[in-house]
Computed example of a mutant assay.
Amino acid sequence: MSLFEALVIVLAGLLAGTINTVVGSGTLITFPTLLFFGYAPVAANVSNTWGLVAAAITGAWGYRREIRETRHQIVQLLPMSIIGSIIGALLLLALPAAAFDAIVPVLIALALLLVVFGGRLNAWAQRHRVEAETGTKTGGAATGAVGGPALSRGRRLALLGGVFFGGIYGGYFGAAQGVLVMGVMNVLLPLSLQHLNAIKNILTPCANLVAAIVFFFVARDQINWAVAGLIALGAFGGGWVGARVGRSLSPQALRATIVVIGLVAIAKLVVFP
């Protein structure tokens, strides 16, 4: 490996760690970079998964206040994300890439719609629930406070199912996993986008870590530790940068950032595969 290649991979890790902490989709930076330098797709994906775990440490620390405030939701959702990621990692090793790649752009587009309209859908669903329980109409919107109204059984099951599916996708590939998870939570959890981002910054890195552990035991020969280490070096700093940037964004700016990154992800997967 040349010095130039090593520096580019570290830079890609830095950018990916930043993007992952802000919203997700950092894999769309590192994965194509590794392919450009000639690494096989599966080996690149597996090594990249290990490398990006480092961003979780600094990213979670940057969001530590919001994580403390949402620990109840995290405890409920984390097992579904972990179980899903194990299944996704095994699917990566068992299925051809085309079997899953065809639907990825559709999933990302759906997630973007959920991010854009999720707040309105959440408010509508919350009003509908209150009216059904009380028989009265209310003009209030869903609260953004932590520990707000309890979720109905249907919404809770939908939330668990969405996070579980996000875990499967994250274990399989991971690009835009954060967009998918944020989209689902934005519709179903009456929390602010910053609190949802804090939950995402625990769920998606844990899914990556579990998938990386599966790869270690099942496909250890596919891991390039030098590449994983270089990505981790950049991603560690990127997580810190991403937390500072992400927490400073207004809800509108954060939503716009998610949409832009999601559209870039779709373009990368469809127009420039």
Rank of each mutant, 00 (worst) to 15 (best):
T58G: 08
L35C: 00
I29S: 07
W61G: 12
G24W: 02
A56V: 01
V22F: 04
G24M: 05
A43F: 00
V46A: 15
L35H: 01
N48F: 00
Y39S: 04
G51F: 02
G62Q: 12
A16F: 02
R65E: 15
F37G: 10
I67G: 11
A40S: 13
T27G: 14
S47F: 00
W61D: 07
V46D: 09
P41E: 07
P32V: 03
A55D: 13
I29Q: 08
T33V: 12
A60K: 04
F31L: 07
T58I: 08
E66V: 00
R65C: 02
T18H: 05
S47Q: 01
R64K: 14
F36A: 13
I57C: 09
A16L: 06
G26P: 14
L35Q: 10
L28N: 15
V23R: 06
T18V: 11
T49F: 00
G59T: 05
G17W: 09
S47I: 02
F31D: 00
F31G: 07
I29H: 05
N20S: 09
V22Q: 05
G26Y: 10
T33L: 10
A54L: 10
A44K: 08
L14T: 13
F31C: 01
L14K: 12
Y39E: 13
T21C: 12
T27L: 08
A54F: 10
S47E: 01
G17I: 08
G62D: 09
N20T: 08
P32R: 02
G38Q: 06
L14A: 15
R65M: 06
S47H: 05
G17M: 10
V22R: 04
V53S: 03
V53C: 14
T21V: 11
A40R: 11
W50H: 13
F36C: 04
V42S: 14
R64D: 03
A60S: 14
T30E: 06
P41V: 03
A44C: 11
L34E: 03
S47N: 01
R64C: 02
Y63F: 15
V42Q: 13
N20Q: 12
A55P: 07
A44D: 01
W50S: 08
W61R: 15
G59R: 11
A54W: 03
F31E: 04
L14N: 12
T58A: 08
L35W: 00
V23W: 04
L35D: 02
E66N: 14
N45A: 01
S47G: 02
T58M: 12
S25T: 07
P41C: 03
G51D: 05
I19V: 15
Y63V: 02
T18M: 09
F36D: 01
L15E: 12
A40F: 00
V42Y: 10
G51Q: 03
A60E: 07
N20A: 10
L28A: 15
V22S: 12
P32Y: 00
G26L: 09
T33G: 09
Y39A: 09
T27C: 07
V46S: 11
I19M: 15
L14Q: 12
V42H: 11
T18A: 11
I29E: 11
A56L: 01
T18G: 05
G38F: 03
T30Y: 03
G38E: 10
A56T: 03
Y63K: 05
A16V: 06
